[in-house]
Simulated scan of single mutants.
Amino acid sequence: MSDPATYPVRLADEITRRLGQLADHLSQLAPPQAAQVIARVLDPDAGVLAGVTHLVATGSVFAKDQAEQGALPAEVWLALGRASNELYDISLDLDEHQDTLQRVAAQPAAATAKLPVPAPLVVRRRR
């Protein structure tokens, strides 16, 4: 009988590999298609970032239980909790740009052929 823990480990490895493939494809896509992929990845309800955030939050709950039993140092739980909170905050910051990404993704190819207007890349962040 195979170890039931190996499936989740293999699944994590496969997801990691597929994310690498997605990044490779993203770098080759035309702007509308790239924007569409990014919008899906960042979708706050069903995107990759939401999934990773949920996974880290679940890991934090696991680490808390293990830390309370003395199997893990409390620092592991605290670090996972912080990471979960930071990912959530990042997703909130990115969510405000979802409409823009979807608008770019919906542009016909002829509209994207026009030269874009350069924008300053120094922007003040609000937190």
Rank of each mutant, 00 (worst) to 15 (best):
A113L: 08
V37H: 04
Q36I: 00
A109D: 07
I38M: 09
A30N: 07
Q107W: 06
H54P: 04
P118L: 05
T53Q: 10
T112R: 14
Y7T: 08
N85D: 14
V76C: 01
A106D: 09
L78Q: 15
L72F: 14
V76D: 01
G20I: 10
T58E: 07
H25M: 13
H97N: 07
T100M: 08
L78A: 15
D13R: 13
D93M: 14
A74N: 05
N85C: 05
L22M: 10
A35R: 04
V123K: 12
R40C: 04
P120D: 08
L42C: 02
P31H: 06
R40G: 12
D95V: 15
P44R: 00
V76Q: 00
S84I: 08
L29A: 09
A79I: 13
F62L: 14
V52S: 00
L19R: 05
V122G: 06
T100R: 09
L115M: 12
A71H: 06
A111K: 10
V76S: 01
Q28D: 09
R126D: 08
T100I: 06
D89A: 15
A57G: 08
E75R: 09
A35P: 03
D45P: 00
D65C: 08
Q36G: 15
A12G: 12
D3I: 12
H97P: 02
L49I: 14
Q28I: 03
T6R: 10
L80N: 01
E75K: 08
L55V: 10
Q102A: 07
V122S: 11
G51D: 06
T58D: 09
Q33L: 13
L49E: 02
P118E: 03
G51Y: 02
V56Q: 00
D99F: 12
I90D: 08
G47W: 01
A111Y: 03
V52F: 00
Q33V: 06
R82Q: 13
R125I: 01
G81A: 15
R82T: 15
Q69R: 15
S91N: 12
A5K: 07
S2T: 09
D89V: 12
G70P: 00
V41I: 12
Q28L: 15
E14C: 10
T6I: 15
Q69Y: 07
L115F: 09
V48T: 11
S91V: 07
R124Y: 02
A67P: 03
G70R: 00
L121E: 12
T53V: 06
Y88W: 09
T16M: 07
P31L: 08
F62T: 10
A12H: 11
P8E: 04
V61A: 05
L19I: 15
A57M: 05
L92Q: 13
R10I: 10
D89H: 11
H25R: 15
